[in-house]
Structure formats: structure tokens, C-alpha cells
Design a protein around this nucleic acid. Structure first.
Length: 106
DNA sequence: GGGTTGACCAATG
DNA sequence: TCATTGGCCAACC
């Protein structure tokens, strides 16, 4: 059956809203959950509509923060006590996916 | 219809 | 851990 693109977008946003506080999921996991598009498509959806949902709970597969928003995301993580990992050089902070990784239902 | 662009991913060294 | 490589999918021009 043909599913509307708009409905798929809503499904992605709903899944993002269902991510527990202090936990995160990945673009790829969301794409797999909705069974449509791919990680890059989900990234595109977030770029457009992410402002209406807790976008900081969606990170890349290796735990790095979404581009262009890492500073704002860090403030949220600190507020939510999200487990973070710091590089040896402390160049960039990443979410500890072992601890905070959350798999969306699909 | 082809080239380019994204808030991407996994394998490899 | 980092950089490179190839693949991925839809939107836009």
C-alpha cells in the first residue's frame, strides 16, 4: 500500500518523542523502525521538522552529536544526566551508546 | 534523467 | 580513535 510521505514523517517524529529521558536513539535505528528511506532520509526529516521534537535524543551511530547543534545538545544532556563519553583529547563529547542507547519499537 | 546535497552507516587499515 | 571508501535514500535543480 502506498504510504504518504507525510505520514512517515509523523511516524518518525512520534518515535523521537517516545525516546525516554536520558536515552538516545540513532538515525539508522529510526529508519529501520519505520521501514522506509534510510538514515540520510531521517536526517533530512530531522533537519526540517526536528525543531518540534526532542531532537537531541537522536544521534549518529557512533554517538556523535548532530552537526550544528552539538552545543545545544550538550546542555540538554547535562540536564537529563545522559551518559557521555569524552575523547582522550576532550575534543568532542559523545553519548555513551552502551549506556544510553535505545531501540525504537518497530 | 543526471548531478548534487544532506543533522548517515559499516567496513577497513 | 581517526580517515578513507563505497553504499545508502529522497529531495531539489
Amino acid at each position: 500500500m502506498g504510504v504518504d510521505r507525510e505520514q512517515l514523517v509523523e511516524q518518525v517524529l512520534t518515535l523521537v518523542e517516545s525516546v525516554p529521558v536520558g536515552r538516545v536513539t540513532t538515525y539508522g535505528a529510526l529508519a529501520a523502525a519505520v521501514g522506509f528511506g534510510g538514515p540520510r532520509w531521517v536526517g533530512n526529516v530531522m533537519a526540517q521538522y526536528g525543531a518540534t521534537v526532542p531532537w537531541w535524543r537522536v544521534v549518529r551511530a557512533d554517538g556523535t552529536l548532530p552537526a550544528s547543534h552539538r552545543r545545544a545538545a550538550l546542555a540538554h544532556y547535562r540536564a537529563e544526566s545522559t551518559p557521555l563519553r569524552y575523547d582522550a583529547n576532550a575534543r568532542a563529547a559523545r553519548v555513551d551508546l552502551r549506556m544510553a542507547g535505545w531501540e525504537p519499537p518497530g
